[in-house]
Design a protein around this nucleic acid. Sequence first.
DNA 1: TGTACATCAGTGAACGCGCGTTCACTGATGTAC
DNA 2: TGTACATCAGTGAACGCGCGTTCACTGATGTAC
Lengths: 210, 210
Amino acid sequence: MTPSYHHGDLKTVLLAYARAQMENVSIDGLSMREIAKAVGVSHTAAYRHFTDKRALLDAVAVQGFEELRQACQAAADDVAAEDAADDARARLKACGLAYVRFALASPRLLAHMFIAVSDAQASAALMSAGAQLFEVLCMRVAEGQERGVFRSADTRQLSHACWALVHGLSTLLGAGLLKGDANPHGEAMDSAGQAIDTFLDGLVDHSARK
Amino acid sequence: MTPSYHHGDLKTVLLAYARAQMENVSIDGLSMREIAKAVGVSHTAAYRHFTDKRALLDAVAVQGFEELRQACQAAADDVAAEDAADDARARLKACGLAYVRFALASPRLLAHMFIAVSDAQASAALMSAGAQLFEVLCMRVAEGQERGVFRSADTRQLSHACWALVHGLSTLLGAGLLKGDANPHGEAMDSAGQAIDTFLDGLVDHSARK
DNA sequence: TGTACATCAGTGAACGCGCGTTCACTGATGTAC
DNA sequence: TGTACATCAGTGAACGCGCGTTCACTGATGTAC
């Protein structure tokens, strides 16, 4: 792609820069003019691809949700699917850890995603991207229930609890708020793993225990 | 306090308006000029009480942390302190529910508080306010461990997990993301209660179980 | 109690700035014949 | 293959705006004697 009047890939490049800048600096202070300038294009060119600033920021959020969903899905799929009873548990845990990993890598993007999706007038695409993420978690919980590993309460209710734990861990770890104790640095994932295990101990079907 | 040249209580009023406006509208789009205007004062008067915009926003956050801490403390204290074994559990749960209640009443304030405190150059007052909130949770967990109700893992580590769950519930419920399923409206607190119970089932000392 | 004066808490004009968005435009690209 | 033309993806000047902050100021308050 030779440098030319027509950029050819501007939309992708704008999104990539917006995401990077949001992560490296801050969500506020990210302006259409700055993005365009950094990308080497006139400050109105972006309007050829996004109706307004909100559309661009929403697109970044949608992309984030999609990426996070894939990471969670892939992490769960990577856990060998033998018939061992604890398999479903391991898959759910892997899923949660992937979520936390994403948050540690991109804390501000995660924050932006949830601010965007919780806006009263969020776009359908955004809502759907968020819902699909939740579905991945939900399916893992359902799987565990089917195999009799998890208690048989309402699946979505249990999934909400899982999501909350993992999202809370992600937010707090991503914000650096769980440091300084037994967790000086780099041990964030370990800490998250322990928290998830504690929670999963509560999720198991106690009636089925020996 | 008669209306006069000297307002007498301007600092308090500025903070109150900033908090209300943040909650009702949004954190961005909250300007020093707007706050001053709404309070009926020249747009530079606020600088008599806050060195800059950041100082004002930080003060709002500190106030929020303080209020949340008191709510959690009070909720735990309200649970009768008999010697029943499950008392510590009930107190921790009450504490968590108070946190969620605060989040449902003031979701944007909560979001602002955590954005502010996780800033790399957050003020000492802010960091301390956040830390004190965590201590309230921590003490409940420690209490449960002393009484042999909770497992005896590292107290702060377990407290982190509690905080994460409750904070995640608060964020997701506050953002309205857990609606539309078995949770049409108004049942947010019930949902949070169930999630906390599930988690607490994992927190109990299984070795001590009969 | 009365007066002089320091301090405090406001005012309002002015600064410079970057922002989102519009508009008429122009150069590049692709397509129909 | 060559040409005419529609469409597409950029440009850059211009718009109006609200922002945070500064400054020299003034009116109100409190205190010492």
